[in-house]
Simulated assay, not measured.
Amino acid sequence: MQILVLGSAAGGGFPQWNCNCRNCAGMRDGSVRTIPRTQSSIAVSANGVDWVLFNASPDILTQIRANPALQPGRGLRDTGIVGVVLIDAQIDHTTGLFMLREGKPLDIWCTPQVHEDLTTGNPVFNVLSHFCTVQWQPVQASSPSPFSIPGAAGLRFTPVPLSSKAPPYSPHRHDPHPGDNIGVLIEDIASGRQVFYAPGFGAMEPHLDEYLGCADCVLLDGTFWTDDEMIRLGLSQKTARDIGHLPQSGTDGMIALLGRYKKPRKVLIHINNTNPILDEDSPERAELTRAGIELAYDGMLIDTGDNT
C-alpha cells in the first residue's frame, strides 16, 4: 500500500499568501531553512495505479500536476482517482472539488453530517450538480464499519469519529455530532498493514487507543506547536483546542501522546504556517526528531511494505 502526501500544510498553505510571520517571511527571503507546502491532502493506492483521494484541497490541480501517478493518460480524458473520501466539510478539504468538475460524476464518501454541510451551509454539492454531479456514498461514523471503494481493490476503510466542531457555516456548528470530523483506518487487505489518518485530531478519546496502538503508521494532526500559538501572535482569540487541534507540546500534547505507542511510524500532517517545526533548524523540530516523529512534506511517499 502506498500513501502519497499531496499536500502537508494547514489551510492557507505555506507560506500563506498574506502572512509575514517568522516562518512565512523567512521562507520568502531565505532566512529560514524550510520548504513550501500546499494544503493538506493524501492519495492512497494498493497497486500504484488506482488512487483514492482523501480530501480535495484548493491546491488540488497543482498537486495532480506534481504527481504524475494521478494522471496515467490512458485515454483522451483520464484520471487515476477512483473515489474521494472527505474527513470533514472544512473549506481547505473540500474547495478543490470544484476543480474536478470537468470529469465524470464524482463518487464521494462522507458522513451524513458532512453531506448536510455541503448541501446547506456551504452547498458545494449543489453547485457541482450543474457540472459533473456528485454520487454520494454514505459513511456511518456513529457505528463504524469498514467499507470498500470500487476501483480500489485490495483496500478497506474504517471511519473513526473524532471529537471536533463542524465548520462555522454548518447548521449544527454549536451542536456537535459524531461524523462532523473523522479519522480513517486504511488497511491493505493482502498484507494486513494499516495506516491511521486523522489530520483533525483534536483530543485523545478512549476508543482511539486501539487505532493508535495497532497501526503500522499514523498520519496525525500537526497544526500547532502550542495551545496558545495564534493568541500569542495576535492572530486569533482561540486556542488550538478551541478550533479542534491537539498541539504538539505540553504534558498532554501530541508528542507525549505518541510516546505511549511503540509500533507505528509517526508522521505529522496539516501543519500551520505559524508552527515553528517548519523551521528545520528550530529546537522544536529537534524535539520532534528526538521523539521519533516525522514531518510530512509534499510528495512524500509512504510505502507500508517498506520497513525502513
Score class of each variant (00 low, 15 high):
Ser170Lys: 10
Pro171Gln: 01
Pro171Asn: 02
His172Cys: 03
Arg173Ser: 02
Arg173Pro: 00
His174Cys: 04
His174Gln: 08
His174Val: 00
Asp175Arg: 09
Asp175Thr: 06
Asp175Cys: 06
Pro176Asn: 01
His177Thr: 00
His177Cys: 07
Gly179Ser: 10
Asp180Arg: 11
Val184Leu: 14
Ile186Asn: 02
Glu187His: 05
Asp188Tyr: 07
Asp188Gly: 10
Ile189His: 00
Ala190Pro: 10
Ala190Gln: 13
Ser191Gly: 14
Gly192Phe: 09
Gly192Val: 05
Arg193Gln: 15
Arg193His: 15
Val195Asp: 10
Val195His: 09
Phe196Gln: 05
Tyr197Gly: 08
Ala198Gly: 02
Pro199Thr: 04
Pro199Gln: 01
Gly200Trp: 07
Gly200Asp: 12
Phe201Gly: 00
Phe201Ser: 01
Gly202Ile: 02
Gly202Asp: 02
Ala203Glu: 13
Met204Thr: 11
His207Leu: 10
His207Val: 04
His207Ile: 09
Leu208Arg: 04
Asp209Gln: 15
Glu210Asp: 13
Tyr211Ala: 10
Gly213Trp: 01
Gly213Glu: 03
Ala215Ile: 09
Asp216Cys: 08
Asp216Trp: 09
Val218Thr: 10
Leu219Asn: 11
Leu219Glu: 11
Leu219Lys: 07
Leu220Tyr: 11
Leu220Glu: 05
Leu220Pro: 05
Asp221Ile: 14
Gly222Leu: 05
Gly222Ser: 10
Gly222Ala: 12
Thr223Gly: 03
Trp225Pro: 02
Trp225Lys: 03
Thr226Pro: 00
Thr226Asn: 08
Thr226Met: 01
Asp228Ile: 11
Glu229Val: 05
